[in-house]
Amino acid sequence: MSTDTPNSVQETETGPPGARPTSVLQRDDELSEHHVYEPHRVGLPPIGTYVKRLWERREFAFELSRTKLRAQHFNTVFGQLWLIINPLLLALVYFVLVDILRDGSRGPQFLAHLTAGLFAYYFVSDSVRQASRSVVSAGRLILNTPFPRVLLPLSAVLTAFKRFLPTIAIYVPIHALSGLPVGWHLLWTLPLVALFALVAAGVGMLAAAAQVYFRDLASFLPYVLRVWLYISPVLYFAQEVPERYRAILALNPLGAPLTAWSQVLNSGHAPSADVLGLSLAWAVVLLVAGALFFVSREREFAVRL
């Protein structure tokens, strides 16, 4: 190994290349490219260049997400209806289940909590599920085109987000009919959705990269995701969790954000500072860990697929 320094993909921008008489079209990038490829051990590529490329190719992530949705019939009436009916039915089933376990003591307020929590949870788990497949299923593209691979899991999060949006339409009437407070505090939902997206992206990148090395993770993932739902404050209120299980709530990256989510939507006040702090900490830790793991590994994907 001649060098331990990370593979340097430098781009020196050095003015326009010689005019090309045959090219009728104006080139968008009048900058010429200069690349140097050198060996690397597992390590990070130059972050500045990487982020720049990522940004240049963001359209790819949008288009990939759009294509995926089209394949899932998102644009048809039935496709949309299914995206609404499916989570609604699940919410009702879980409601009846919990209500039976609680001897019929659960009111409409709890239904609102359950639906909101379930929809947020599905946003995250849908992201992770789609992201985990994103790299493995793009084999040919990865073998033939150099581009920041992280666009693949990020696009999956975007797809899941678009599938999450219609569920808001179900939640709004439930919220209103349960007589839950409406006010400026509801604006807190926006940063909280962003937090969910960060958690989803972090875990999604981890899952996508891990899947390259261990293909059978695909069969473990549904179990992991189901357990994740059960240890999250969705089927119960966070404050109902007994003292001895509190640690689980804190160690669950979705524990704090879902608690905050319910505080805003159900209790009708801004999330408490400690819950918000913990949510943010988890989101940042997962995002950084996921990005570092994925990006430091991604140049190896081409030889592993």
């Binding site: 690349h35 140097v36 490829y37 050198e38 060996p39 033939n144 085109t145 081409a302």
Partner: peptide
């Protein structure tokens, strides 16, 4: 390797210009 898809194990490659590979653009990736 020249297209920057596979990292070299040893040695060094310098490329001036934008590269397009055949099957370029990963056509048919899905």
């Amino acid at each position: 390797t020249v297209a920057g898809i596979l990292p070299p194990t040893e040695g060094r490659i310098e490329v001036r210009g934008r590269v397009s590979t055949l099957l370029a653009l990963g056509v048919g990736f899905n």
